[in-house]
Design a protein around this nucleic acid. Structure first.
Lengths: 180, 180
DNA sequence: TTTACTGTACCAACCAGTCGGTTTTTTGTG
DNA sequence: CACAAAAAACCGACTGGTTGGTACAGTAAA
């Protein structure tokens, strides 16, 4: 794959994300994505031989991005859990529009496409559990944070913006205190 | 609406739920639901003038059912929170197949269809908060339980069956101790 | 020469919703 | 209770539009 092709692939994925965010999970069609990416449908199919491949790439892209940000944050925090919660607090809403509908599109299309998400989650959980010796409280914090993400995902958060911010800080705070 | 019509409506909703569970959220089509319900497409449309109406009814049905079960459980527990967690522990997986894909179908189709779910959630949360004087720990338990539900919803639970059961019992236990 | 596309035309499958007509149920009346 | 008229419930072929994917001839760049 040449450099230009890499750029094109990246553009297509970004376009797919923005279509999902703007039009909704159900409107991620090949034509719409191609148009948004400034690419012909033939060009899209050239890189992603099927819609499934495209959505799979979207999901993978999001996971990679999340990983990257968490790694950076890890250097500023004492524990994986604290870094994880802080990362989610900082970026969740910012990328929520993109992520939410993308994940949803994947789930509705074919639940198997979320398997990478599950494995990613398992890895996170194991690391947190290991760092805190299976502490139930650490597990609770981890799960609570996930609930907040899911709320955004489905756009059913019961919190106001401020409540949400306070809550996220509470989670981070408790995570930091856990090992202190 | 006659008695027979009520039965038909109920059959259609049940059929819609089972189609969602069996075939996936993306496969909830009017034809598929009609066939599963043993009803013609015309008959389906007669009762639900649009797909949106059908999915909306599905969601409402699930909320009503959940409400009913929680009310029963409330009489056996000391707090709303404990009842809520225990109800989820007992029934989540049993109805997960149905519920999961139904909610997902609604979300992918049109996020606004989940508004009743959100309001339902807000009401729950307020009651829990009121009963426990805004206790952060109660909130954490509530959120953790929601995370478990969402895991089932998207079929991305990082837990084994046994871990899941233990975890649910842990949540219930902590909820009961909260006000003791 | 291979890779990376463009552009267009096309297709089969699918899908929400319509419509004219039929059956079943309810209701008003003697 | 009997019975017809009216209303409600239901049928299923059909329509118009969309979608994922194909085919392919041609072009531009690496």
């Amino acid at each position: 794959m040449s450099k230009k092709a890499q750029i094109t692939v990246s553009q297509i994925i970004q376009a797919a994300l923005s279509v999902a965010a703007d039009k909704g999970a159900g409107k991620v069609t090949l034509d719409a994505v191609a148009k948004a990416a400034g690419v012909s449908k033939g060009g899209l199919i050239y890189h992603f031989p099927s819609k499934e491949a495209l959505i799979s790439a979207m999901v993978q892209h999001l996971l990679d991005e999340a990983d990257c940000r968490r790694e950076q944050q890890t250097q500023l925090e004492q524990s994986t859990l604290a870094a994880l919660l802080q990362t989610r607090a900082s970026f969740t809403r910012q990328i929520a529009g993109n992520t939410a509908m993308a994940i949803l599109a994947a789930a509705a299309e074919q639940p198997a496409l979320l398997k990478p998400v599950q494995q990613h989650n398992i890895a996170m959980l194991q690391q947190v559990q290991a760092e805190h010796q299976q502490s139930p409280q650490a597990l609770l914090l981890f799960l609570a944070s996930e609930a907040l993400v899911f709320h955004d995902l489905l756009q059913i958060s019961p919190f106001t913006e401020q409540e949400r911010i306070d809550l996220e800080q509470l989670l981070v705070q408790q995570a930091r205190e856990l090992q202190a």
